[in-house]
Simulated scan of single mutants.
Amino acid sequence: MFRRLFGQRDAEPASRLAQVRNITVGRTVALDPLAWRRLGAETCFTLDRDALEITAQGLIQLDDGPFVHRFYTDDHVMLQAMSDDAAGAAAYDFTLFTPWSSAYPPDGAARRAWADRLSEPVFNGQAEGLPSYPRFWFSESEARQPPVRLWESVYDDRTALEPYSRIFQTCMLYARDLAGGRELMIALEQEPQGGEPTHEIMIGIPLDMAEFSA
């Protein structure tokens, strides 16, 4: 009764998700367009705005310890950060990715062929309208290398105790150097628990900390 009389509000529910440089579900991220414009006409990366509305958040724990924090918009633009802790208190290695293509593999043979492509030291992107990309992970070797496999837990509510989705991913990261900087590409198969697998390609760029804020 006294709360109603004096206008006191209940406390906002505590966030259970990491906040990486103040970024989490429900926040807006401002971007500096020079981050991609400096790459010029060579790049395949495109983005038609300088602000991202974050509506989902993913967390991956890698086998060797670091955490990957991912922040998504409704149209699948992804801002990614690495950190040594799940809270993202000391995050580093920021990247921004936009979707390039997405397809449902028709059968097991198509899935095996995709995994074979991800094992090569160079990804030939001609079928997707892309150039060739040298492998960034395991770049010290020209031998075939099995792609990385990991689980991502995805949340769409800051107060959630459990993820709304868990996605198994088979992926490889690639990079090519342009006159204005480096362009990244990640190719992956993702299979949500209880869902159908898809083959995805995303084009990315590295971000300096001064090139974004929330």
Rank of each mutant, 00 (worst) to 15 (best):
M1V: 14
M1T: 15
F2C: 12
F2P: 02
R3T: 15
R4K: 15
L5P: 03
F6C: 09
F6K: 02
D10M: 12
D10V: 13
E12S: 11
P13K: 11
S15K: 10
R16L: 15
L17G: 02
L17W: 01
V20K: 02
N22K: 15
I23T: 11
G26L: 06
G26H: 05
R27N: 04
R27A: 11
V29A: 04
V29F: 04
D32K: 04
L34I: 11
A35D: 01
A35P: 01
R37N: 06
R37H: 15
R38H: 06
A41G: 13
E42G: 05
C44K: 11
L47Q: 03
D48M: 12
D48K: 13
R49V: 07
R49P: 01
R49K: 12
T55C: 08
D63R: 15
D64R: 07
D64F: 10
G65H: 05
P66Y: 02
F67K: 00
F67N: 00
V68I: 10
V68A: 01
V68T: 07
F71G: 01
D74K: 07
D74H: 11
D75E: 14
M78V: 12
A81I: 01
A81W: 00
M82R: 10
D85M: 04
D85K: 03
A89C: 06
A89E: 01
T95E: 13
F97N: 02
P99D: 01
P99E: 09
W100E: 00
S101I: 02
Y104V: 10
R111W: 03
W114V: 08
S119R: 01
E120L: 14
P121M: 05
P121H: 05
V122E: 06
V122L: 10
Q126P: 02
A127K: 03
S132F: 04
W137M: 13
W137A: 13
F138K: 14
E140C: 09
S141K: 12
E142V: 15
A143F: 03
R144L: 11
P146E: 14
V148T: 07
V148S: 06
V148A: 09
R149H: 06
L150F: 13
L150W: 07
W151R: 11
S153W: 04
V154A: 00
D156S: 12
D156Y: 05
D156C: 14
A160G: 03
L161F: 02
E162I: 12
Y164K: 11
S165L: 08
S165I: 04
I167M: 09
I167T: 12
F168P: 00
Y174H: 08
A175R: 06
A175M: 08
D177Y: 05
L178V: 09
L178W: 13
A179S: 15
G180W: 07
G180K: 10
G180Y: 10
G181T: 03
R182W: 05
Q190T: 08
Q190E: 13
E191A: 05
P192W: 11
G194T: 07
G194W: 04
P197V: 03
H199P: 01
H199V: 13
I201P: 01
I201D: 00
I201Q: 03
I203E: 05
I205A: 06
D208L: 14
E211T: 09
S213I: 14
S213E: 14
A214E: 02
